[in-house]
Amino acid sequence: MNLFRILGDVSHLLAMILLLGKIWRSKSCRGISGKSQALFALVFTTRYLDLFTNFISLYNTVMKVIFLLCSYVTVYMIYWKFWKSFDSENDTFRLEFLLVPVTGLSFLENYSFTPLEILWTFSIYLESVAILPQLFMISKTGEAETITTHYLFFLGLYRALYLANWIWRYHTENFYDQIAVVSGVVQTIFYCDFFYLYVTKGRCQGRVE
């Protein structure tokens, strides 16, 4: 465990709590892509099946359970509790374009051909593209509310910190996880355009358009 890893996890948690808090306080999920949130719930579900098979640390278990709960509560808020405010006409990204290639790739390129490892690989690949429906929605409507942009900023920051964590681990432990690093780099690239808008426009106007 290094500083980049801890800060990365904290920023990931903060992103999810910000999003939940925003939905809860405004009693609305306008501008949030339900598809992205459903994909994140699927990512955590398929990755954290190891909760049942091996115990790593208390921190690890607690964080995994919190991430799972947050993602399920978010999906529940969007598709049930505050369904009326959900902007489904603008959440039109075709999920099969992500799910089909990601499923295929996880069967082809994995560490071992066992159900748990394939699901773990699937979750890594899926996480790298899960934000696309949200970014697609923002580009379609042409705007994002301030809190949504903060959410995306912290999610992107988490990715960037994880990259730093992998560089650190490579140098200190000689540990290098090829699948996670390649997907992580791809995922971080998706946030670059958004980061640019966030810094140049978001800060002064309070929203990204």
Binding site: I56, N60, Y111, W120, D177
Partner: peptide, 10 residues
């Protein structure tokens, strides 16, 4: 060992 190191990350 590597598998454990991977599953340690969130």
């Amino acid at each position: 060992k590597d598998q454990e190191a991977r599953h340690d990350e969130l």
